[in-house]
Amino acid sequence: HNLTITQGKLFFHYNPKLCLSEIHKMEEVSGTKGRQERNDIALKTNGDQASCENELLKFSYIRTSFDKILLRWEPYWPPDFRDLLGFMLFYKEAPYQNVTEFDGQDACGSNSWTVVDIDPPLRSNDPKSQNHPGWLMRGLKPWTQYAIFVKTLVTFSDERRTYGAKSDIIYVQTDATNPSVPLDPISVSNSSSQIILKWKPPSDPNGNITHYLVFWERQAEDSELFELDYCLKGLKLPSRTWSPPFESEDSQKHNQSEYEDSAGECCSCPKTDSQILKELEESSFRKTFEDYLHNVVFVPRKTSSGTGAEDPRPSRKRRSLGDVGNVTVAVPTVAAFPNTSSTSVPTSPEEHRPFEKVVNKESLVISGLRHFTGYRIELQACNQDTPEERCSVAAYVSARTMPEAKADDIVGPVTHEIFENNVVHLMWQEPKEPNGLIVLYEVSYRRYGDEELHLCVSRKHFALERGCRLRGLSPGNYSVRIRATSLAGNGSWTEPTYFYVTDYLDVPSNIA
C-alpha cells in the first residue's frame, strides 16, 4: 500500500525493539523526510534493546553428524571492536523451508527459537588472519532439518551509529543413524509349514526405512522333555500350542467401542483428552525405555581390526524358502538304536541362519518350516543398504507352526516275539517326523474274553527296548493296539495285532 503524509511529521519514542533503520525507511515511504526535528525521533529510546544489523554474515563451514552440527561463519568486528559482546545463534526444527525470524513471537518477546549466546573469538592483530567464530550444536535429532541463523550482539553506541551483522536463515539436516526397533511384532501360524509375521514401523526411523531383515531359527525343545518319565503317576503330560491366527481386521481397528449394538453396526467412541494424553505418555515412556535398553543392555560386537582377528559373527547367506525346513542338525536320541526319531534339535552355532529381506511392506510369510516346531524370529529395521547396512537392534518374537495331521501315527506293522515265561516283546517304529517329539506310547492289549488293559511306555523305555515287553501273560489269544502321544496330543491307534500265548508248562520236552 502507498502511504503519503502531505502535512505533519513523524514522532517515535520509547520503541526499544524498533531499529532506527526501520524508522528511516518509514520517513522515505511516507514522504516526511526532512520535516522531523532532532528530538522527534529519539536516538536513545528507539532500538536500544534490539540488534540492528546492516551487514550480512556468511557461514564459512558446515559439518553434520547424526546428532551434531558444527558451524563456522566469517569474522565480524565493528569499528570499535570492544562493542562486540558476542553472537546469538538461533535454531529450531523446520520440516519445511518457510521459516521466518519472527515465527511464534508474542507480545512478551518470546519466540519459538532456541538461542545460544556465543563469546567472540580472540581478536588477531592481523586483519587478514582473524579467527572464524563458530559453535557445535549438540543433542539434535537424527535425520531432522533445522533452520539456523546467527547475528551479532553489540553494545549501545553513544554516537548512535547503527552497526551489526546478521546471516540469512539456512537449512541444515542432520545425518541418518540406526533406527529404533520395529514396533509390535506379531507372529502367527496359518499352516503346519508357515508363519505369518506382521509389525509396525519404528517410532524413530532416523532416516528413510529402506528394508527390513527377518531372521528365523528353529528352537530346540526343553531338555526336561527328553529326561522326564511322563508315565509316572502324578506327572502331567506336557503340551505345546501353536500360535493362533490373526483376529479379523475389524476387531483390530483402534479407537473402536468394545460393545456392539445388537441391531447392527455401531460407531466408534472418540477417545477423551485424558485417554489420548495417557497414550502419549505411555508411548514416550516406551521410547525412553527402549533407548535405555539399547544403550545399557546391548553391547556392540567388536569388529575385526587390522591384526587379522576374525569377526566372530557368522556370515549372512541367503537361502531359498524351500530350504528352511531342514535348518537344524538332527541327532538321534540314543545312538545305539537307529530307529528312534531325530527330534532332539541342538543347533550348531556355526550354522548360517536363513533370512529374508523385506522391502516396502511390514509383513512376511515364512514358508518351508517344520510342522509343530518353535521358531525364534528376529526382526531388524534398516535405513541404508549400501555401502553397508545400517540397521536397528533386533526385536524378537516366537511362534510355533501348526501340527501336521497323521504325523504322530505309527507307520509300519507292530511285530512281536514270544519268549519263555510268557513274555512277549512288542516292537514298532517311532514316527519319523512327529509333531514336536514323542513323549510316550500307549499300549492297549486284551486277552479274548477279558477286559482291555493299558500300559504306558516312556520315551526312554522305548529307546532301550525298541518297544516294550509284556510279562506274566496268561495263555490265550491276544490283540494289541499302540498309539503315540506327542507334544500336540495323541496320534491314531494302530491296526490290531494278534498273537497267541501258550502255557509254557505244557511245552513238550526233548528229553527222552
Score class of each variant (00 low, 15 high):
L225F: 05
K361I: 08
N435M: 00
V424I: 04
S458C: 14
N435Y: 01
F337C: 08
F499L: 12
N490S: 15
G489L: 05
A405P: 06
E265W: 12
S509T: 11
E404T: 07
V439T: 11
E260K: 02
F419T: 15
G264F: 02
V501R: 02
S223G: 05
P387F: 11
V457I: 09
C456R: 03
R313A: 12
R318M: 05
C468I: 07
R447G: 06
R400W: 10
V501G: 00
D291G: 15
E452N: 03
Q429G: 14
V501N: 06
D291C: 09
V345D: 06
T415E: 01
E442W: 09
P205A: 08
F226E: 08
A335H: 10
R353F: 03
I276C: 03
G207K: 03
S257C: 06
E247G: 08
L437V: 04
V414L: 08
R447A: 07
A394R: 07
A488Y: 14
K406S: 10
R301A: 04
P434K: 04
S257W: 04
A399Y: 09
S341W: 08
V334Y: 09
V501S: 02
L455Q: 07
Q256D: 14
H352L: 08
P346T: 14
W242T: 08
E404I: 04
Q380F: 15
T288Y: 15
Y504D: 13
E221H: 15
T401A: 02
F215L: 08
I482L: 08
S344I: 04
S251M: 14
Y445V: 05
P312M: 14
Y396E: 07
N360G: 08
I418M: 01
L437H: 03
L437E: 07
C269F: 09
I438C: 05
H352Y: 07
F337S: 08
E417Y: 03
F298R: 13
W242S: 14
T415S: 11
Q384L: 05
D408F: 00
H454T: 09
F289D: 15
E378A: 14
T415M: 14
N206H: 11
W216G: 03
R469E: 10
P403Q: 07
R447I: 07
D229T: 09
Q275F: 09
S243Y: 06
S223K: 04
P332Y: 03
A263Q: 14
F372L: 05
I438F: 02
Y445S: 03
R318N: 07
S344P: 13
V457A: 03
S284V: 09
F298P: 04
H425V: 13
K278D: 15
R376F: 13
P431F: 02
G322Q: 05
A394H: 14
S342H: 11
R390K: 15
Q384A: 02
H254L: 13
G306N: 12
I377Q: 02
V345M: 09
N435F: 00
G368K: 04
S398W: 02
E260F: 08
N435W: 00
N477M: 07
I438Y: 02
S392E: 03
T502K: 07
G472Y: 10
R481F: 03
S363R: 05
L440Q: 14
S203T: 08
D222N: 11
V329M: 11
D222L: 12
V443C: 02
R481S: 05
C231A: 02
P314V: 07
D506Q: 15
S458R: 07
F226K: 03
D506M: 08
F372Y: 13
D506I: 12
D229W: 05
D385K: 13
E356H: 13
P244Y: 14
A407V: 09
G368W: 13
L277S: 02
E388L: 06
T333G: 14
E351R: 04
V365I: 01
E495T: 11
E282A: 14
G467W: 01
E378R: 04
T210V: 11
N383Y: 13
A395I: 07
P354H: 13
P349S: 13
F289W: 13
K278V: 12
R481Q: 03
D250G: 10
V443Y: 01
D503K: 07
D409A: 07
E247D: 08
R313I: 07
P244S: 11
K361C: 09
E433S: 13
P244W: 07
E388K: 08
P475A: 11
N360L: 07
R240I: 07
T485V: 04
D323N: 09
Y478H: 06
Y375C: 01
L455I: 08
T307I: 02
H416E: 04
S223D: 10
I418L: 06
K287W: 15
